Simulated scan of single mutants.
Amino acid sequence: MSEATTLRVLSGLPAEPAPLSESTLIVIDAQNTYTQGVMELEGVAAALDETAALLDRARSAGIPIIHIQHDAGEGSPYDVRAEIGAIVDQVSPRGDEPVIVKNFPNAFVQTDLDSRLREAGATPNLVLAGFMTHMCVNSTARGAFSLGYAPTVVAAATATRALPGADGGEQVSASALQSASLAAIADMFGIVVPDTKSIPDSREVVR
């Protein structure tokens, strides 16, 4: 068997992230529901710390920041009218940072995210952080790629949870699902970097 490679490599797509100064940060579903109860994610506290650090860098760089918030209706774990569906205080919007409410895993579906980005003259470069890695982060990265954007996912600013195995099989651990989800994104749809420090501030060579 030949050594594993990615479709990005075979297609000649970029392997390194664009500078933060030439990107838009999108924070996906950093909501309270993922910090407690049945939807609590493995490693969520560390992921929120990393997201907060990423937000600090983005704000200092003066780049556009967009927050995404999922709404599944009243009484759900994603009820944006209730505390459970609110954005975590640690990474909540500041100033005029917009919040786009979505109803599907892909943040581009039936929202004005694409039109906002294009009307603002944003570059194609998007930096993605948030939850859950296998669901809304993965779906939004794929959606962005299909629309011509170039997403970069910050692995340490994402997290997920264990899932039941298909057809009653063995449970898939959160760590296994995290690794597989990031690998699936990196295969074609986006660049995956380990942490915030891996994204350069500008086009200067990082030493």
Rank of each mutant, 00 (worst) to 15 (best):
M1H: 08
R8S: 07
L10F: 09
S11G: 09
G12S: 09
E16W: 08
E16M: 13
S23W: 06
I28F: 05
A30M: 11
Q31F: 07
Q36A: 14
V38C: 01
M39R: 10
G43A: 12
A47D: 12
L48A: 03
R59P: 09
I65W: 05
H67L: 10
H67N: 07
Q69P: 15
G73E: 05
G75R: 01
S76G: 11
Y78Q: 03
V80G: 04
I84G: 02
V88K: 04
D96R: 06
V99R: 00
F104L: 15
P105N: 00
P105F: 04
S115M: 15
L117A: 04
R118G: 11
G121T: 06
L128T: 03
G130N: 02
M132D: 05
C136I: 12
C136S: 13
C136A: 11
T140C: 11
G143N: 07
S146Y: 08
S146G: 12
Y149M: 06
P151N: 01
V154Q: 03
A156E: 10
A159W: 01
A159D: 09
A159F: 07
T160P: 00
R161Y: 07
L163P: 11
P164S: 05
P164R: 04
G165I: 12
D167I: 13
G168F: 08
G169F: 07
E170M: 10
Q171H: 09
A183T: 09
A184D: 13
I185F: 07
A186F: 09
A186E: 14
D195N: 14
S198V: 05
D201Q: 10
